[in-house]
Amino acid sequence: MANLSGRAVLVMFCATFTVLAQVPSSQKLQTIISRTPKGKPDLTGVWQALNTANWDLQAHAAERGPDPWTGVISAVAPGPGVVEGGEIPYLPAAAAQRKQNYKNRWTADPEIRCYMPGVPRATYMPYPFQIIQGSDTVMISYEFADAVRLVSMGNPGPAPADSWMGWSIGHWDGDTLVVDVTSQNDQTWFDRAGDFHSDALHVVERYTPLDANILMYEAAIEDPKVFSRPWKISMPLYRHIEKNAQLMEFKCISFSEDVLYGDLGKQEVSK
């Protein structure tokens, strides 16, 4: 992938989106996806993205990873990117910040510290998440960091404060679950490459069933402090259909503590 020209990447993008756009007719969909008594798609299940967007939302080549001692295990997996149009439209100052973040990515990415990943990053981390579609709340429970969102399908009023996973309000647009996410803090990144946002981030997610086991996921992102215009990512999400599919406990705090508190350790005074 490293030698692909920009044009080739763009062509690949178009091809990808053309394939994804092949949504079955609504009549066919009516019969192949399970529905609630109210006729809405039932999205309950264990889902996962199958791409390398968590390494970098934009097209990227394979690369040496942060830890030479673990060899290929920590290598950056290549990917054609998930940003519509290919590029994230940073404002000039923000582009400089992104460059800085990229330089410091092996120490500055909040994922290293097991911090809740924010939206949309939680969706395309390399771990499954579970949708539990209730009557007036859709819970989205993520394996990573035990992060969770309670999507209100009514009007819960404004967010009381900014938070890591934001304030999620959902509604149905035909067969699409639309979730409006506001009030996220400015502490999360979009990926391990340092793509970032401010506390003015506004994300509108769309979850559209393509068939019983595939959702098309789209996140429209706007943040006037960081980007010159709104932009979009999209990717399919796949249902885990294996019999023993489930989220496991991944309370990653214990794996972050050496990084977080290691410099306070007692090695140098223990003698």
């Binding site: 579970q130 539990i132 709340t137 819970m139 035990d146 969770v148 309670l150």
Partner: peptide, 17 residues
Amino acid sequence: VQGPGVVAIDTEMVHEV
């Protein structure tokens, strides 16, 4: 929150699910 075949409980104390 309940869905077909699953009951989920979110605990407000440190969001244990």
